[in-house]
């Protein structure tokens, strides 16, 4: 393990990416459902046992894969940091002319923008997974900015 490469910025990205991925499996949207229906023949009463159905970012009805994209971005950023820091993989200095600091900044901003867009969007009630993903996406941007400001960041 190369501790020198685990700068504060990298740690923030690692944690935020992990949170993002885990949160993507929690409830992204929740919707009220009718639930169980009890029909009393004698009285003729119908009783709806209201329930709640949740969709993760990976659920078919939850907007997969557009809701999954921020999580994939976060996981990718964390993976790049982990590969460099723990597996000692030597990634190319630049990808398509972008430095890694620039890539992290762009990807983090994209994930955060998408989550902010979901926040504004008129969608069903947001679940705990959504809120965690929103926080984690902001964490990705913070981590990327920290990396940018670190001297000779990996």
């Amino acid at each position: 393990m190369n501790n020198a490469k685990l700068s504060p910025g990298n740690i923030v990205i690692l944690v935020a990416g992990a949170v993002m991925l885990v949160a993507s499996f929690l409830a992204f949207f929740t919707v009220e459902t009718i639930g169980d229906v009890d029909f009393d023949i004698e009285s003729g009463e119908i009783d709806f046992d209201g329930g709640e159905k949740s969709f993760s970012a990976w659920s078919d009805g939850g907007g997969f894969p557009i809701t999954t994209l921020p999580a994939l971005i976060g996981a990718g950023m964390a993976a790049a940091v982990a590969l460099t820091a723990f597996a000692k993989v030597n990634l190319p200095e630049r990808v398509l002319g972008f430095s890694w600091n620039q890539l992290h900044l762009l990807l983090g901003a994209q994930a955060a923008l998408m989550m902010l867009a979901f926040l504004i969007a008129d969608t069903p009630d947001k679940g705990i997974g959504f809120w965690l993903m929103l926080l984690a996406s902001i964490g990705l941007v913070v981590g990327a900015v920290l990396r940018e400001r670190e001297p000779a960041a990996a």
Binding site: F64, P65, I66, L69, G97
Partner: peptide
Amino acid sequence: NQLFLALGVFAAVMSLFWLIA
């Protein structure tokens, strides 16, 4: 050029993901 490329690629990826969704 970097910004154009990044925005274009992000937009294309989002479009593709929307197409699947």
